[in-house]
């Protein structure tokens, strides 16, 4: 997994962003933010995606559709799968009835991977896309 660095811009970054918990001062440096906030409050911005990148559409944080999540293959995990654990919660997968296999063949607890895919379209282990983008 390549790691890359550097350069920045200011951003409304996280999906659970809590505007009102921020120190008031941080809004001062960017007029653009005020505009964005007003529009959010007035409901003018649809489908706003925090953590998105203006320059690169692929980087926009986007979850997987409900339909795709429903189609994911559920299976039960037996000891023949080795001593596998779910990389999200680090708990064992063996003996668990609700295990999900995503298209790249990686296995996770059903609850764990669904929570991730609500906001992301990639495998936590190999970053393969779970849902093809149109």
């Amino acid at each position: 997994m390549a790691e890359v660095y550097c350069g920045y811009d200011f951003n409304l970054n996280t999906r659970n962003f809590d505007f009102f918990s921020l120190p008031i001062g941080i809004f001062n440096f960017s007029v653009g933010w005020h505009h964005l906030l007003e529009e959010v409050e007035e409901g003018n911005v649809q489908d706003i995606s925090f953590g998105g990148y203006e320059s690169d559409a692929d980087q926009v944080m986007r979850g997987v559709s409900k339909c795709t999540i429903e189609k994911l293959e559920q299976k039960s995990c037996s000891p023949s799968n080795g001593d596998a654990s779910c990389c999200i919660c680090l708990e064992e997968l063996n003996g668990i009835k609700k295990v999900v296999e995503i298209p790249c063949s990686h296995l996770f607890h059903c609850k764990c991977i669904i929570e991730w895919l609500k906001y992301n379209n990639s495998c936590p282990l190999c970053r393969c896309k779970v849902e093809e983008e149109e």
């Binding site: 920045y8 811009d9 200011f10 409304l12 990148y53 320059s55």
Partner: peptide, 14 residues
């Protein structure tokens, strides 16, 4: 005291 997570970083240099 803004958090680095509120910065929009871009990454170009490996």
């Amino acid at each position: 005291g803004r958090s680095p997570k509120e910065t929009r970083w871009w990454f170009h240099d490996d």
